[in-house]
Each structure stands twice: as C-alpha cells, then as structure tokens.
Simulated assay, not measured.
Amino acid sequence: MKKRVISILLAAIFLLISTTTVFAENNQVKNYEGNFLKESGPIEITDGLRDQLKKMREKSASDVQPMAEAPPLSYLEVYAAISSQNPTYEYFTANQTSSVADHGGAEMYIVTAELGYGFQRHAKIANSAFLPEVQYQMIDLDNDSIVDGWFYWWDASGYDSGLFTYENRSANYPFNTMFDSIIIK
C-alpha cells in the first residue's frame, strides 16, 4: 500500500511538472544585440499574419482547456528582414519566394514567426553554419496574456544574399518538423 501511494504521488508530481501553460507580459522582447535592433523597435504583426495565425490556432485547438500543455508548433514562416543596407523591415507574404529589397551590409537580421512551441530551431543562409538567435518577441493574438507564438531574429550579418532556410520541431505531440525558406537579395 505504501509503495502504491508513493507511486501515485510521484506520477502526480511528474504530471504537474510536465504540463506547461505559458503567460507573458505584453510586448515581451528579449534583445541580445546592440544599437541597430534597439533603434528598429519591436516588429509589428501584419493583419495578414494575424488572420493566418488565428485561423491556424482555431484549426489546431478546437477545445482549449485552461492549464493545458503548451500548444504544438502549427505554423511557421520567414516573416521579415532588416539590414543596414535596407534599415526598415521588409515584410514577406506567405508565398513570397525572394526579398524585393537589396539587403546586406554590416548588419542583417532575418525574422521568423511561429505559432505554438518548438524546441529545435535551426536557421541558415547560403549553406552557412547555423545562425545565432539574437532576439525574440512573444506573439499574443488576443491580448489574453497567454503566449500564442514567437518572433525570432537571426543574425545574418556578413552575408550579402543567399537562400535563408529555417526549421523547427514541435515541443509536443505530434512532434512535427516545419520548414520555410526565402531567397534574400
């Protein structure tokens, strides 16, 4: 009987630890870099992305429960680029295959957007080694202080152009891997 009670307690503790509900303050931004990204300010969610993310969230979570585990990765895209050569964000559409602006220069950052939670983020440009993640910002689609997704900034400084690829694997079931790419001019 004593072993059974201990087993039940351990199982309950494990369940409490393994479920994650994420709350965040509005406009939570983690900035590792210096002046260039601070001067550009937080990235905005375009109406098109907001609509697309809301549709995906509704499709993937028809019965959301309070205190449920974090949602799986259900949407991912290369969202924007900013560089010292083009110092305002160039926002990409979901089906865009290359940037319009000519990027590059001393600093270049590429922004990805995702809905849900992943844990194996990998970004590359022009077959480089993995690019460092230098900043992130939470996405809260309906201002309920629950994180719906994330923007991530990738440091591609030193590259003038090339194919930018990004992939991430869901942190929870179904543990899917998602991928997107764009040619940066």
Rank of each mutant, 00 (worst) to 15 (best):
L49S: 04
Q28E: 09
A12H: 11
D102I: 11
T97V: 12
V147K: 02
T21R: 10
A94K: 15
A129R: 00
S98C: 08
K54C: 02
E77H: 12
D142M: 10
E90R: 09
L73P: 12
S99Q: 06
M138G: 08
S62Y: 01
K30R: 10
E25P: 00
D144I: 00
P87W: 06
E44K: 15
T93G: 14
G149K: 08
E107H: 05
Q52V: 07
N31C: 05
W153P: 12
F23W: 12
D144K: 05
M67W: 11
V100L: 08
S7M: 07
W153R: 00
S74C: 01
T20E: 13
M67T: 02
E44Y: 14
L10P: 09
F151N: 13
I45M: 11
P72D: 13
Q65K: 06
A11P: 01
G34I: 00
V134I: 09
L73C: 08
A24S: 14
E58Y: 03
N127S: 09
A11C: 10
A101T: 01
L53A: 10
Q85M: 07
A94S: 10
H103G: 06
N27Y: 11
I43P: 14
Y152Q: 02
Y79C: 07
F14C: 05
P72F: 06
I43E: 08
F92D: 01
L131P: 02
I43S: 02
G105H: 01
I8M: 10
P132C: 01
Y91T: 09
D142F: 06
I146T: 08
G104V: 05
E114A: 15
Y89L: 03
N31M: 14
